[in-house]
Computed example of a mutant assay.
Amino acid sequence: MKAAMGYLAGLLFGLGLAISGMTDPARVLGFLDIAGAWDPTLMFVLGGAVVTTFIGYRLVWRRGAPLVGKAFQLPSRRDIDARLLGGAALFGIGWGLSGYCPGPAFASIGGLSAPLAAMLVAMLAGWYLARRW
């Protein structure tokens, strides 16, 4: 049941990315181009996600326990270290250069292109290196 719920959540997330147009790297790069032809679409998608998450968390916390699982699994670390800052910087650089972040990249695999393949290979290499470090 836990795996099915994870699959359903991932499917819903991927559909949301596709419907909102966030799997198009040109749209993301247009959002990042504040000095040129700025596209505010991503701001509205992110704003909708923040509002939905805000309301959703309030509803979920009232339950006291998750529907699937024994307890909520929340991160316990709150420190900011060089690995976190370096990873965030690399993520931002990769996102700005390619127009993809991991969710839209995986959602776009059906239309695999050379830039998308390069981004996925770089992301997997970074993931592997972070695990070995």
Rank of each mutant, 00 (worst) to 15 (best):
K2Y: 03
M5C: 15
G6L: 13
L11P: 00
L11D: 07
L12F: 09
G14C: 07
L15K: 03
L15V: 06
L15P: 03
L17T: 03
A18W: 00
A18K: 12
S20K: 00
S20P: 09
G21V: 05
G21P: 12
M22G: 00
D24C: 03
P25I: 01
A26N: 08
R27V: 15
R27M: 15
V28F: 05
V28A: 07
L29A: 08
G30L: 10
F31I: 02
L32R: 00
L32E: 01
D33I: 13
W38T: 04
P40L: 09
T41V: 04
L42C: 01
F44S: 05
V45N: 00
L46W: 02
G47Y: 01
G48F: 09
A49E: 11
V51A: 08
F54Y: 14
F54N: 08
I55A: 08
R58G: 11
R58A: 07
R58H: 07
W61L: 15
W61E: 10
R62V: 04
G64A: 02
G69Y: 10
A71V: 10
L74M: 13
L74W: 05
P75V: 04
R78Q: 04
R78M: 04
I80A: 06
I80N: 02
R83L: 14
L84Q: 06
L85D: 02
G86V: 06
G86S: 11
A88N: 10
A88V: 09
G92L: 14
I93F: 05
I93A: 14
G94I: 03
W95I: 12
G96S: 06
G99P: 02
G99S: 04
C101E: 01
P102G: 13
F106Q: 02
S108I: 11
G111Q: 12
G111M: 11
L112E: 06
S113R: 07
L116C: 06
A118F: 14
M119Q: 05
M119I: 03
M119P: 01
L120R: 04
V121K: 11
A122K: 00
A125M: 14
A125K: 05
G126E: 11
G126H: 06
W127C: 15
W127N: 15
W127I: 12
A130C: 07
R131G: 13
R131F: 10
R132G: 02
W133F: 11
W133D: 08
